[in-house]
Simulated scan of single mutants.
Amino acid sequence: MGSDLRQRAERTGLAMMAAAGILVTVADTLGWLDKVAPGGVTKLTLLILSVVTGTVLLEIGRLGLLDNVNNQLSRLDMESIAEGLKREHYSGVIRVHRRFPEEAFTRYVETAEREVAILQTWIPNLHEFKHALKKAVVDRQVRVRILLLLPSSPVAGLRDEALGTAQDPPEADVNLDVQHCLSTLAGLYGSVRPEDRERLQVRVYNSLPSIAVYKADEHYLVSSFLHGRLAIQSTQTEIDGADTVMGREVQEELNTLWRIGRDVDLADWRGSLSTIV
């Protein structure tokens, strides 16, 4: 608003100056100038002033464009500074959720272009974004990597105890829940074309779970395996940027468990598990 008013004022002032130069020149030609202002400004000076003023008047539009460019650059500078501060002081953390945000993660999966990865003991909320995973694999050729706990791992029993599932009646069974998750993924695997199936990769790991991770491109949702609650019921730290401090640490953990994990053939996941010790 202020810039527009200033430009209009500049245009008006310059137009008046240009008009005054023309009028004075005409008055001088008709001999009126000497009567009004004897010994006044010479014709040459007035002509030069009129030409310069008219030229500047024509350039006002371009000067306005420069103002717009300057405003855009200022905005970019502020955004760049904010991004730098976020990465420096918060290590890539952009927000913290009280529990897993299914809708937000589903949106991230729906817009992912390169990779979706999940590290869990099992995925209790798989049904929330199963359809989005299928569309990512089929429609956008996105690689989907899923890491689950080996159902027969001793860690499964420890996690049962941590969740309080040894109580009667048990509320969950990690072994059975992992198998149910694998069965769901096998159904997803069977529902896509053979040429799309290679992009859906599942491995099981026999190791102490460190963190739960849901990743879509460079967005990470990270939580801990606390006692008495599922990881998706715990606080979720959202990280933006694989090159941030937190992003690099989480990605390295994903890479480590992927290396030690064993492939599951979703065409025969039960038979595949029987060969994994």
Rank of each mutant, 00 (worst) to 15 (best):
residue 257 L to M: 15
residue 8 R to T: 11
residue 230 L to G: 03
residue 41 V to Y: 08
residue 30 L to G: 11
residue 25 T to K: 07
residue 260 I to H: 15
residue 42 T to I: 09
residue 184 T to Q: 14
residue 53 T to R: 02
residue 36 V to Q: 07
residue 120 Q to G: 04
residue 277 V to K: 13
residue 254 L to H: 02
residue 137 V to P: 01
residue 109 V to E: 03
residue 52 V to S: 03
residue 40 G to Q: 02
residue 61 G to A: 11
residue 121 T to G: 06
residue 13 G to T: 10
residue 56 V to R: 13
residue 15 A to S: 09
residue 71 N to C: 09
residue 266 L to D: 00
residue 136 A to H: 07
residue 102 E to Y: 15
residue 7 Q to L: 14
residue 113 E to I: 06
residue 231 A to F: 08
residue 96 V to R: 09
residue 132 A to Y: 09
residue 177 D to K: 09
residue 129 F to Y: 15
residue 201 Q to I: 15
residue 84 G to W: 04
residue 134 K to A: 13
residue 268 D to P: 05
residue 5 L to G: 10
residue 145 R to P: 07
residue 46 L to W: 13
residue 31 G to Y: 02
residue 17 M to F: 14
residue 165 T to E: 11
residue 181 C to Y: 06
residue 233 Q to E: 15
residue 148 L to W: 06
residue 229 R to S: 14
residue 72 Q to T: 14
residue 16 M to C: 12
residue 188 L to H: 05
residue 153 S to D: 03
residue 244 T to W: 00
residue 56 V to H: 12
residue 83 E to M: 01
residue 73 L to I: 13
residue 53 T to K: 03
residue 41 V to I: 15
residue 119 L to R: 05
residue 43 K to R: 14
residue 259 R to A: 12
residue 243 D to C: 00
residue 144 V to D: 00
residue 247 G to S: 07
residue 72 Q to H: 09
residue 26 V to G: 05
residue 211 I to G: 00
residue 214 Y to K: 10
residue 149 L to E: 02
residue 61 G to P: 03
residue 68 N to W: 08
residue 191 S to T: 05
residue 54 G to F: 09
residue 168 D to I: 14
residue 153 S to G: 02
residue 83 E to R: 01
residue 242 A to Y: 04
residue 139 D to A: 14
residue 33 L to K: 04
residue 30 L to N: 11
residue 138 V to A: 08
residue 120 Q to K: 11
residue 158 L to S: 09
residue 201 Q to S: 10
residue 206 N to C: 12
residue 47 L to E: 06
residue 243 D to G: 01
residue 217 D to T: 03
residue 11 R to M: 10
